[in-house]
Write a protein that binds this DNA or RNA. Structure first.
Length: 362
DNA sequence: TAGAGACGGCCCACTGAATT
DNA sequence: AATTCAGTGGGCCGTCTCTA
């Protein structure tokens, strides 16, 4: 990475970052201690240490968790870069780097599981307050690094900025980012970044819906745009559920009329379609398989139970597993488990439908 | 002394890179 | 090409400390 900006100058230690954070994003403003607590100080130090600013050298939570006192003490650009690269590879790579440096201190700042408060509390809160630049093109469940500091926020940690100059700079930043309009601006920028990478699905009723980027969303789009209009007489998309998101209900009124509860705790299909054609009158329960999770006998029974518990007749339920291709590994892996009485559909062969039927039932 | 907050730990589903 | 592994996302819970 030859065109990377220079690494920023650092403050003395974590304590110094905590002190500044308490001025910039105090709990009294953010409503949570996560914006300026010890974890937040560790995050700020580490992000500045590796130069995670303005889209360059993004980190993930483990980059913070794996930092150690011995590493933090090494301030050469080459060492900082070396830690960044090691932390991108694995914890073992960090161990190896420490060994190469002859560091005896083997304790990371935080245990691996502490990534959760780092991610869920500190980084979330910073993002809400315009302190981060949202990662672009990184899938929700990807382990790729995505977090960088907003350059204006990072500038507040400049060691040469002290006393009155620091106070002024902080007040200026707060007035641009922490006001109602500042927050709204951050939210809009965040939404715009997400929309740019979204998968746009055209619904049967003419509307559109944006889904997260990823193979699953491409398959969902295929089912809605290519499968449903051909196979269903009068298709309606009732809801879509995506990882990392509450169930996305598209037709609340219909869901209510059907009397189906959308309970987050229970097993729900990835996609629920209804065929309102009076001659067909069916409910399509669809599972989308990018890697795993087809309609197995167990899943079929659970989904059927969910539907029939609420008055849907079993003979009105259709079960479909949607795949990217029948030539790809996920389908081959799923074949032995596919539930009898379910269908399979493939994104790369949208005009076909594979039926696994009970001979006696037909 | 009860309740709230902080923090570390565990679980599940899913993804992409590394390994075989 | 298939499988494994490590790390992400979303959750929940137990323990400790501080405070009302």
């Amino acid at each position: 990475m030859p065109d990377q900006p220079a690494l920023p100058a650092l403050l003395a230690d974590r304590t110094a970052y905590k002190a500044r954070l308490e001025q910039i994003l105090p709990a009294s403003i953010t409503g949570t201690t996560a914006s300026a607590n010890e974890i937040a100080a560790a995050v700020a130090f580490t992000m500045m240490y590796v130069g995670a600013v303005d889209g360059h050298r993004p980190i993930r939570p483990s980059t913070v968790a794996w930092m150690r006192d011995g590493i933090a003490a090494r301030r050469d650009d080459a060492d900082r870069q070396a830690y960044y690269l090691a932390a991108l590879r694995s914890k073992q790579a960090v161990d190896a780097q420490c060994h190469a440096w002859g560091l005896t201190e083997t304790r990371s700042w935080y245990a691996d599981n502490s990534r959760e408060p780092i991610r869920d509390e500190t980084l979330r809160t910073w993002a809400d307050n315009g302190a981060l630049v949202s990662g672009s093109g990184v899938q929700t469940t990807s382990s790729a690094p995505r977090y960088t500091l907003h350059p204006d926020f990072a500038a507040l940690f400049d060691p040469t900025l002290t006393g009155e100059k620091l106070d002024t700079a902080i007040k200026d930043w707060q007035s641009r980012h922490l006001t109602l309009t500042g927050r709204a601006r951050a939210a809009r920028a965040h939404a715009a970044a997400r929309a740019e990478e979204a998968v746009v699905v055209h619904l049967p009723d003419g509307g559109t819906r944006e889904l997260h980027i990823g193979a699953s969303s491409e398959i969902i789009r295929g089912v809605i745009e290519q499968f449903a209009p051909v196979r269903l007489g009068d298709p309606v998309v009732i809801f879509v559920s995506q990882s990392g998101e509450k169930v996305n209900v598209l037709d609340e009124a219909l869901l209510k009329r059907l009397g189906l509860p959308v309970d987050q705790q229970r097993l729900l299909p990835d996609l629920l379609l209804a065929d309102l054609d009076p001659a067909r009158d069916a409910l399509w329960l669809v599972e989308v398989v990018a890697t795993d999770g087809p309609i197995t006998e167990e899943r079929r029974a659970a989904l059927l139970g969910w539907a029939t518990d609420h008055g849907v007749s079993p003979d009105r339920c259709r079960f479909l597993t949607a795949f990217e291709s029948r030539t790809a590994a996920p389908f081959k892996k799923a074949v032995p488990q596919l539930a009898r009485g379910s269908y399979a559909w493939f994104l790369d062969e949208p005009d076909g439908l594979l039926a696994w039927e009970d001979l006696a039932a037909e």
